[in-house]
Nucleic acid binder design. Structure first.
Lengths: 154, 154
DNA sequence: GATCTAATCTGCAACGGTTGCAGATTAGGG
DNA sequence: CCCTAATCTGCAACCGTTGCAGATTAGATC
């Protein structure tokens, strides 16, 4: 997602207005790696700007998504999550706590895909499942290192 | 998903009863590659067994999912889809028509994942985005071949 | 900075998918 | 064949999200 100042320009360039509500959401989303739900953003925003409407949060998030400034994540169990990180990346979701974490995968292009059946694949979204570091330590398991393959873990 | 006869055993083994409604759903799901929604299954089931309740379809699908006989897919835009294919596989979803297609990827283990930050990855779910064969031909594009990499397509 | 209009905000109602509930029915072990 | 727990059905409730309408406001124009 662009920085707040640039978003302001981008909104005006599209004929959209930049309201205090939107500016607040811009800053709340900027560099936000928590993959917030609408409710979570609404809760935070409400503290800083009491009276802001849930409807407005939805509206602004939809606008940002339509402009390609946010990724929309449909994780299991109800509500949509939003990801302002638009760099090519993927996610690791903890089986226990549900936490979503950004990860980076370099060699996706090399995957051999069978049964495409004429499908022209242009993008890939990967969600890894397993246990996050915090939930592992709660279960007294050994720690892992970074930059490993799935295979290493078996 | 197991075959209907085996599901019958598995249900009874768990103290669950095998009703005509459930048997019907077992057969409707068996080898079903359409990734049906609850509504779609309900529509088909209703033709064969008028009066079957939508609630029963939900119930049975939830049971099957809890038993690990179905994968639950949260694709964008509303309703959940169910996939009785429990072999390790992934999906290709068409940007235009939304169609979901099973694909197989062999070398996931070799992916280099950065920023795992202690996350212990045990599974990966990949959804490829792009255009399905049907939607490509509607846009007069050239055809693709099978068994290719993302890279080949660029 | 005053004016004007389209975009926006808020609150509420509506909507679609899903689940809880309760009373009637039924699978299936004894 | 009986009995009881599991299931079925229909309906109401629930939750996340969107449509609507009237009041408000950003920001272009003068």
């Amino acid at each position: 997602m662009l920085a707040p100042a640039e978003l302001t320009r981008a909104f005006r360039a599209r004929g959209l207005k930049v309201t205090p509500q939107r500016q607040l959401l811009f800053t709340l989303l900027h560099d936000n790696e928590t993959h917030p739900t609408v409710e979570a953003l609404f809760a935070t925003a409400s503290k800083l700007m009491p009276g802001i409407s849930l409807r407005t949060v939805y509206q602004t998030l939809n606008d940002l998504a339509a402009m390609g400034e946010l990724q929309v994540l449909q994780s299991a169990g109800g509500s949509t999550r939003f990801d302002p990180n638009m760099a090519e990346h993927h996610h690791a979701q903890c089986d226990r706590c549900g936490e979503l974490h950004d990860v980076y995968v370099d060699d996706i292009d090399r995957l051999q895909v069978r049964n495409l059946d004429g499908f022209q694949a242009e993008r890939a979204r990967i969600v890894f499942g397993g246990l996050c570091a915090a939930c592992q330590s709660k279960s007294n398991k050994k720690k892992t290192t970074e930059n490993t393959t799935l295979k290493d873990r078996r």
